[in-house]
Computed example of a mutant assay.
Amino acid sequence: MDLAGITKAVGAGVDLAGVAVIVVGGLIVTAVFAGRLRRDGGRLPAAYRLYRQNLGRAILLGLEFLVAGDIIRTVAASPTFTSVGVLALIVAVRTFLSFSLEVELEGCWPWQRRRAARALGTPEA
C-alpha cells in the first residue's frame, strides 16, 4: 500500500472513531438519563439539562475526530487548492458548531468563564 492509500485509510479510521464516539456516547448518555429519571422520581428539568450537557460533550468530541480525519485525508493525500478550500469550509462549519455547542453547554462565552466561575463560587476552568 502506498502513502496515499495509508493516509486515506487512517483518515477513514479517524472518521469512524468520531462517528463511534458520537453514537456510543449518545447511547451511554441516554441510558444514564433514563436511569436518573427512574432513580430521582422523574425530576425532568435537572436530569434533562445534564443529559443535554453530556450529549453535547459527546458530540463535541466526535466532531474533533471528524475534523482530524478530514485534515489527514486532505493535507496528507493530495493537497490541491480546491481540496484545501473545501477542507477550510468544512473546518469552519464544524468549528462554528463546536463553538456554539460549547457556549450552549457552559452558558457563557469562553472569555467569560472566569467571571461566571467566580460568581458561582466554583473553581475556574
Rank of each mutant, 00 (worst) to 15 (best):
F96E: 09
G41F: 04
I72W: 06
E106Y: 14
A34Q: 04
L37W: 00
L105V: 14
G5P: 06
L44V: 14
V32Y: 03
Y48L: 11
A117C: 09
T30V: 02
A88Q: 02
A34T: 08
I28F: 01
G25H: 03
T74Y: 00
P110R: 03
E124Q: 13
L105R: 15
R57A: 15
I28D: 00
L101T: 02
L27T: 10
P123H: 13
T7A: 06
W109H: 14
G26D: 03
F81T: 15
I22D: 00
L60I: 11
F65L: 09
G5H: 14
F33T: 03
R52Q: 12
G121H: 09
I71H: 01
A117E: 08
T74E: 00
Y51Q: 00
L63V: 10
E102K: 15
F81W: 14
A116S: 13
A117K: 12
I72E: 01
E106L: 15
V23E: 02
P110F: 06
G69E: 09
E102V: 07
I28G: 00
I72K: 01
V23L: 14
T30G: 01
G69R: 06
G69N: 05
T80P: 01
A31S: 06
F99E: 08
Y48A: 04
V23P: 00
R36V: 00
G41D: 02
I71Y: 04
I72V: 08
P123K: 08
W111F: 02
L87M: 11
P45Q: 03
F33N: 09
Q53G: 09
F96S: 11
E104K: 12
W111P: 00
G18K: 03
V19T: 10
R73W: 04
A34M: 08
L16Y: 04
P123N: 09
P123F: 10
A4R: 15
G42L: 03
L89Y: 01
G56L: 02
S100M: 12
T30M: 10
G5A: 13
A58H: 05
A20P: 01
G107W: 08
G5K: 13
F33G: 03
L66H: 06
R43M: 12
A76D: 03
W111G: 02
A34S: 10
L120S: 11
L44R: 13
A68P: 01
A125C: 07
G85H: 06
R115W: 05
G11P: 03
L37S: 02
L3P: 07
T30L: 06
S78Q: 15
I6N: 05
R94E: 07
G26H: 07
V32R: 05
G42T: 06
E64S: 13
L50K: 08
A9M: 13
D2F: 02
D70W: 01
A88T: 07
A46R: 04
G11C: 07
G121P: 11
V21R: 05
S78K: 13
F99R: 15
E104M: 15
E64Y: 07
V21H: 05
L97Q: 10
R52K: 12
S98H: 10
S83P: 01
